[in-house]
Design a protein around this nucleic acid. Structure first.
Length: 248
DNA sequence: CCATCATGGATAT
DNA sequence: TATCCCTGATGGC
């Protein structure tokens, strides 16, 4: 396969994999690992701005932001905007795996996540964004999972109880699986609207994320910056738990 | 043309 | 908690 860096910022890396045969691609949480054999890996993390563009021959000219183009005679993939695009070896790959929490899409056991939730007084909204607690969930799924569970984002994790911890895990796992299947971050329930999942688009894609009003109750959605990210939640559908003396 | 915002994370303080 | 990096779409002048 051919590799090049039209933008130039990954010129050395592209040269290194140019002409090699890709053996496989692994996804761990939000990290992608391209296996070039002999312990050589391309590590990609899309971050906030990263994206792939897929082309069929004849390929369009790359943009001036295209950091990496990988191509065969028939197909090309362009990568731009990624937070991480780097060649690494086995030790660095192992370190990535080691620092990530369980990823439901890999069939990892939920134990470590459940134990973290049981132990910590950190708000559940922060735990869900912590990639060492749970791999793969970002802001959309975090907001929508808490909505699906009727949980106040600021509730200290351990006050929710083990049954709710399990439910949060299950909901996140279901969202991630749906994401793989559909290629979209749909979190609404087809049964609630009587239409197939494929029709849950636009204004019916999510219940609270980036919405002015709750898709379920019609009440106002609250929006607030929390640790650098914007939380969205419905205070009517996700009421705070009553204070229990000595619980937090 | 410019400001603003976005599915993320590392680093400084 | 603040700042910076990465890119692209959008909307207001």
């Amino acid at each position: 396969m051919g590799a090049s860096s039209p933008q130039g910022r990954f010129a050395d890396g592209a040269r290194e994999i140019d002409g090699r045969c890709l053996r496989g691609i692994d996804a761990v949480g939000k990290h992608l690992l391209y296996d070039w054999g002999e312990g050589l890996w391309l590590h990609v993390h899309l971050g906030l701005f990263g994206r792939f563009r897929y082309h069929v021959a004849p390929f369009p000219a790359p943009r001036d932001t295209t950091r990496l183009r990988m191509e065969t005679d028939a197909d090309a993939i362009d990568l731009s905007g990624a937070t991480i695009c780097a060649l690494i070896g086995d030790p660095e790959r192992d370190a990535i795996l080691a620092r990530l929490g369980p990823d439901p899409l890999r069939g990892d056991p939920s134990d470590a996540f459940l134990e973290r939730c049981a132990r910590t007084a950190t708000p559940i909204a922060a735990v869900l964004m912590d990639q060492s607690a749970l791999g793969g969930v970002g802001n959309v799924y975090r907001c929508e999972a808490l909505f699906a569970c009727g949980v106040d984002p600021f509730a200290p994790a351990r006050t929710l109880g083990s049954a709710m911890h399990r439910r949060v895990w299950d909901v996140c796992a279901a969202f991630l699986a749906t994401g793989v299947r559909t290629g979209r971050t749909v979190t609404t329930d087809p049964a609630e609207f009587g239409v197939p999942l494929s029709r849950l688009t636009g204004a019916r894609k999510n219940y609270v994320y980036r919405r002015a009003t709750c898709l379920r109750c019609g009440g106002p959605v609250r929006r607030e910056a929390f640790r650098g990210r914007t939380l969205h939640w419905c205070p009517a559908c996700q009421p705070p738990l009553p204070d229990v003396p000595g619980s937090a």
